[in-house]
Write a protein that binds this DNA or RNA. Structure first.
Length: 365
DNA sequence: CGGATTTGACCAGCGC
DNA sequence: GCGCTGGTCAAATCCG
C-alpha cells in the first residue's frame, strides 16, 4: 500500500523535476511539506458564490484596494486581440470589508500557467468552444426523436423488444452527442490555492457541469463553465491529493465579456475602458518572456500578509500571446521576484502533475 | 418555476 | 484493438 503510494509520489516528483530541471537545476531542494501555504482559509461567504459558499478569491489575495475595475479576472481572461466593443458601464464597487473579513488572511498561492495547445489567441478565437454555443445544433438533441432515431436505427432495432427498458432509451438519447472533431484546447493556466473551499470566487458566474473522481486522489474534480452566453471559459477545480487544503484551479479559455459581477469590488485593476478588462499595466513583455518557467513570488498588499507564488509553465512557442492576455493581471501588476525556493516549492510538492499536462512534461525531456 | 447541481453515461484521446 | 482516463452531456433532482 504505502509502497505503491511512494512510487506514485516518486513518479510525480520526477515529473516535476523534469519540468524545471533545465531551468534551475539547483532548485530541487525540499519544499517543506507544503508549508509555504499558510493561509488561514477562513470560510468566507461570497456574494457571487454558490450555496456552499465560495471563498472570495480576490479577497484572499487582498487585492481590493486601489482599484476600480470590475474584476481581476477580466484582465487576464481577455485576449488583447479580441478588440471588444466598449465595455458597459461598470457597477459601483461595493465595500470590500462589508462582505469579507479578509484581513489577517495569510495566503500563498502557486500559480501555474500552461498552454497545452497552440494558442487560440492566434486567429481563431473561441473556435474550439463550439459546444458552449447555446445555439449549437447539438443541444437540440434534447428534444430528441427524429435525428437520433435516424442515427440510432441499428441500436434501436436491437433493443426494440424491450420498450420498458428505460435505461436503453436513455442511452439512445444520449448517443447522438457529437462533438467538434479535433477540438482545440484553449490555453490554460492553473494555480494552487490553500483554501478550505473549492470554488474560489473570481467575479464570474460559473455553472458546474460535471464532476469526476480523480485517479489517485480521494477528492473529485469539478468542472465549471462560465454562464455568460457565448463565453466558453471553463475551469476545473480539484483538491490536491497530497494536501487536501490545497485547491488547484485550472482556467481554460478567455472570457469574451466583462465581469458580470463585482463582488465587493475586490478584484479591481486599473480598468482600461478601451479594452474592457485588459489590464492597463503589463509587465514588460521581454522581461516576462525571459522569465518564463521561472517561479515568481508574488507579493501583494504587504499589510495583508499575502504572498502568492507563481510559476509559468508555458511552452515557448505558444506562450507569448497567452501570457499577454491571460496571465493574471494582478500578478503582472505587482512585482515579481524570482527565487529558487519557489521553484523547489513547485517541484517537490508534486502538485505539478495535477496541472502540467503530460505532453508538456514530456516536452521537457 | 427557473436556474443550478448532481450524477451516470457517453465520447475521444492515448498508451500498451 | 482494447482498456483506461479525462472531459462532457443531459436527465433528474434540488433549491431559492
Amino acid at each position: 500500500m504505502e509502497k505503491k503510494k511512494e512510487e506514485e509520489k516518486k513518479e510525480i516528483n520526477s515529473m516535476a523535476n523534469l519540468r524545471f530541471s533545465d531551468e534551475n537545476p539547483t532548485a530541487a531542494s525540499s519544499f517543506g511539506g507544503g508549508s509555504i501555504f499558510d493561509m488561514a482559509a477562513g470560510a468566507c461567504d461570497v456574494s457571487g458564490g454558490d450555496k456552499w459558499g465560495s471563498l472570495g478569491f480576490m479577497d484572499l489575495l487582498g487585492i481590493h484596494q486601489d482599484f476600480s475595475a470590475p474584476s481581476l479576472f477580466d484582465s487576464f481572461h481577455h485576449p488583447p486581440i479580441l478588440s471588444p466593443p466598449p465595455p458597459p458601464p461598470l457597477p459601483p464597487l461595493s465595500s470590500a470589508s462589508e462582505l469579507l473579513p479578509s484581513e489577517n488572511i495569510d495566503t500563498k498561492q502557486v500559480l501555474l500557467q500552461q498552454t497545452s495547445l497552440p494558442s487560440p489567441a492566434s486567429t481563431v478565437p473561441e473556435s474550439s468552444e463550439v459546444l458552449n454555443n447555446p445555439a449549437t445544433p447539438n443541444s437540440s438533441s434534447i428534444s430528441s426523436s427524429s435525428n437520433e432515431a435516424a442515427n440510432d436505427d441499428q441500436t434501436k432495432l436491437a433493443g426494440d423488444d424491450e420498450e420498458q427498458d428505460q435505461d436503453k432509451s436513455k442511452k439512445l438519447q444520449l448517443k447522438p452527442k457529437k462533438k467538434n472533431p479535433k477540438r482545440q484546447r484553449e490555453p490554460r493556466f492553473a494555480f494552487m490555492t490553500k483554501s478550505e473551499v473549492d470554488h474560489l470566487d473570481d467575479g464570474y458566474r460559473w455553472r458546474k457541469y460535471g464532476q469526476k473522481a480523480v485517479k489517485n486522489s480521494p477528492y473529485p474534480r469539478s468542472y465549471y463553465r462560465c454562464t455568460s452566453a457565448g463565453c466558453g471559459v471553463k475551469k476545473r477545480v480539484e483538491r490536491s491529493s497530497d494536501d487536501s487544503t490545497i485547491v488547484v484551479t485550472t482556467y481554460e479559455g478567455q472570457h469574451t465579456h466583462p465581469c458580470p459581477i463585482t463582488p465587493r469590488g475586490t478584484i479591481g485593476i486599473a480598468h482600461d475602458p478601451s479594452s474592457f478588462g485588459a489590464p492597463s499595466f503589463v509587465v514588460p513583455q521581454p522581461q516576462y518572456l525571459h522569465q518564463q518557467q521561472q517561479p515568481y513570488i508574488y507579493t501583494s498588499s504587504p499589510s495583508m500578509n499575502i504572498t502568492t507564488t507563481t510559476t509559468t509553465t508555458s511552452t515557448s512557442t505558444t506562450s507569448s500571446s497567452f501570457i499577454n492576455s491571460s496571465f493574471p493581471a494582478f500578478l503582472q501588476e505587482r512585482r515579481f521576484m524570482t527565487t529558487p525556493s519557489a521553484a523547489s516549492l513547485l517541484r517537490d510538492d508534486g502538485l505539478l502533475q495535477d496541472i502540467v499536462p503530460s505532453q508538456m512534461r514530456k516536452l521537457e525531456d
